[in-house]
Simulated assay, not measured.
Amino acid sequence: MSPPRRPPVPMADRIDARLITIATDHVRRLGPGRVTVVGVAQAAGMTHANVYRYFPSKQALIDAVVGEALKPIEAVLADIASAPDPADDKLERLVLDLARVYRDLLERDGPVFRLYVSAVEANRAVARRHRGRIRMLVERVVDEGITTGAFEPRDRDRALSFLTDVLYRFTHPAAVLADAGLARDVLDRRLAAVVRVALRALSVGLI
């Protein structure tokens, strides 16, 4: 008996992915300023009018490039948040890995990371969605810590704001870009010290 056939991937999804892949390659080779819908269309073997069926503008296509690059980051952090580890361990890993994967993306794919920084500075939807997903994961781990007694903040919302404030220096994409010339081990030691202080503040109710 032959195995069941998988349902075919919708053609639109395959075309979307192909266009994003081509646009990403053009960003890397040409820089975002020289990426054009016409150029992407020619590389895909279609008309630029057809590209607009999937992405209504060049900016929408560029945002899709950014969103695709952020998906693996969100997956890594979601796995941490869903792990069975104690909440304080998970929060530490979540923060350290967020800084690490951003730096990895910057070093591996600088043009795309800079597009992400631009999206953050312009408060574009792709950046807001990503920020919302990261905040949701942090909130989930903090809430778990409160439930289990690992964290005893005086005020949950103030505690979350405190985390955002103290970790900005190491996890905000603009700060990551600004620190591109600093040695990673130096930044890692500094971030680890900040995380220890933040975890202590959460655990003993300083905030």
Rank of each mutant, 00 (worst) to 15 (best):
A127T: 09
L30D: 11
T147N: 11
L30R: 08
L98D: 03
M136D: 10
S118Y: 03
R133I: 07
M46C: 12
V197C: 10
F151L: 06
A41Q: 03
P32Q: 12
L94R: 03
R5C: 00
P4Y: 00
L199M: 10
A78T: 06
P32A: 13
D79W: 06
D155Y: 13
V37Y: 10
D85N: 08
A87E: 05
L163G: 05
I80H: 10
A180L: 09
R129A: 14
R93Q: 09
V142W: 13
A78V: 03
R140N: 07
I62W: 04
G45W: 09
E144C: 02
V138C: 05
F170T: 09
A193I: 08
P86K: 00
R196S: 14
R169Y: 08
D13S: 12
A175E: 15
V176H: 07
F170L: 13
Y116N: 02
V195G: 03
K71F: 12
P8M: 02
A17H: 06
P4Q: 04
A87R: 00
A201W: 01
P3W: 06
V138R: 09
T36R: 06
E74K: 03
G31L: 04
V9D: 00
A43V: 04
F162P: 09
A17G: 07
D88K: 11
L115D: 02
V197S: 14
R34I: 00
D155M: 08
R93V: 02
N123Y: 08
V138A: 13
R114Q: 07
L206S: 14
G205F: 12
I146P: 07
V176W: 02
L115A: 01
R140I: 04
R154N: 13
A12K: 05
V204Y: 07
V117L: 02
V35Q: 06
A201Q: 05
L191V: 01
L187Y: 08
R140A: 12
L187G: 01
V195K: 02
R18W: 03
P111N: 06
R108T: 10
S203Q: 14
L106P: 00
R18Q: 10
G39N: 05
A49V: 10
